[in-house]
Design a binder for these strands. Structure first.
Lengths: 235, 235
DNA sequence: CGTAGAATTTGACCATGGTCAATTTCACCG
DNA sequence: CGGTGAAATTGACCATGGTCAAATTCTACG
């Protein structure tokens, strides 16, 4: 069951947040006082599309999916949320404040929930924080443009190769990383069926571009994987 | 050739703008004084992806496409710009201020170009305008999420049916509208090849859902078209 | 008007990636 | 440990929508 814990949120808890970390100390206290820690079990929904958006969130641990549903039951993950990531900020500025997507925990997760009205009031007096937020939304927007481009201009193989390289990048320069989410979810996020994802990984392994051990991926031929991602592949 | 006209921009010219219309009168004058009218010929580029983003734009007449290119020459239109629409605002808040897409005129077009630095400075002192802008970027973000959902959860037929209904909606309740852009561009925007678009339209016509006369579309069976768009189609 | 080049339509064919089904592997829990 | 249900893999098959090519209609402009 979702639990809104009484555990108070400390001022330090704001520091990981891409926007709130910039608040002046006095306001941080005020915000922290209004914030709550929320714990979700694996599979538990945080909110539904269409729910009134009273809070915005920061993921402290665990993993969540943000997704849309089609009338015929299809699901499209528009974002996978990992620790350090905040989400739902844009709802504060929508004409009708409703969550535009569903959110469900994929693992046991711990979130910090901030009060949307409170933050909204604070923004009125802090142009700096407004700018931070404008920057954040701009990055999100370009991220989405990137997703649209990938879905439209790249095939499954290219998207998957690109994703692997991006993950390796994030994990550091070791060319080795763990898949944070189940393959099923990664596949959906990439706009591909799990079967197709699995087949592509097998193919990469067979071609010697990749080695896999359990959840760990080791990239063996970064260059060629890069060429595949850009469609300059000779094979 | 692209022309930055000396034609001054009047304060009234700001009124159509979704954000600038909200400025206090004094600031409007300042902004108008710095703004310039730009005219583009059909096919002429306004900016390239990666260009320094010194201006943001408002479309007064004509039509433009915002697009990405793949390494293999493929093109994906992420937005069609029509009169009354502003664009490129998000670039003001990016860490490196570069246009993230290409922009080219599809018809002879007239734009108003605003100075990004000037607007940025103004925003520092006007939380109201900041909020307007946050709202605008939020809407853009959700628009993109909608596009991603459509590309992932709907097939070509569904997206095209949905598009026709949306256009009819925008045009008023008459169930009749003109396609503002060439079919080629609309098709690309919908993530479909022109041949597929053409075939879908023919099919709709044959099924009696639609009548077409030159550039004009008349929707004959709104309900069934709606069911097709949502995948509840029995046929 | 008439013509050139582009846009659109139509037909025939085919590839990518989805669907369905059968295993195999994995992860959690008593 | 052992067992159970979900996740992942693999194979066989097929549908959607893309490709290529040809015919037709538009549109701009001399």
């Amino acid at each position: 069951m979702m639990k809104a814990l009484n555990t108070p949120v400390s001022v330090e808890d704001l520091d990981g947040h891409p926007v709130l970390a910039e608040l002046p100390a006095s306001l941080k206290e005020r915000v922290a006082a209004r914030a709550r820690v929320v714990r979700l079990a694996r599979g538990e929904p945080l909110f539904q599309r269409g729910d009134p958006a009273r809070r915005i969130y920061y993921c402290r641990s665990g993993e969540l999916k943000l997704f849309r549903l089609s009338d015929s039951g299809g699901e499209k993950i528009v974002n996978l949320i990992h620790p350090g990531r905040s989400f739902a900020e844009a709802t504060m500025f929508m004409p009708r404040r409703l969550y535009p997507v569903y959110c469900t925990a994929l693992k046991t997760s711990e979130l910090i929930a901030y009060d949307a009205d409170d933050l909204s009031a604070i923004l009125r007096d802090s142009p700096d924080v407004c700018f931070q937020l404008l920057g954040l939304l701009s990055r999100r927007l370009h991220e989405k443009i990137g997703q649209i481009e990938a879905l439209s201009l790249q095939n499954a193989r290219m998207r998957i190769a690109g994703f692997l390289l991006a993950e390796a990048e994030k994990a550091g320069s070791a060319d080795s990383f763990e898949l944070e989410a189940g393959k099923k979810y990664v596949a959906n996020f990439l706009g591909v069926k799990p079967e197709t994802f699995s087949r592509a990984i097998s193919a990469f392994r067979d071609e010697g571009l990749l080695r896999t051990e359990a959840r760990r991926f080791v990239i063996a031929d970064r260059d060629r994987l890069g060429r595949i991602a850009r469609g300059q592949d000779a094979v």
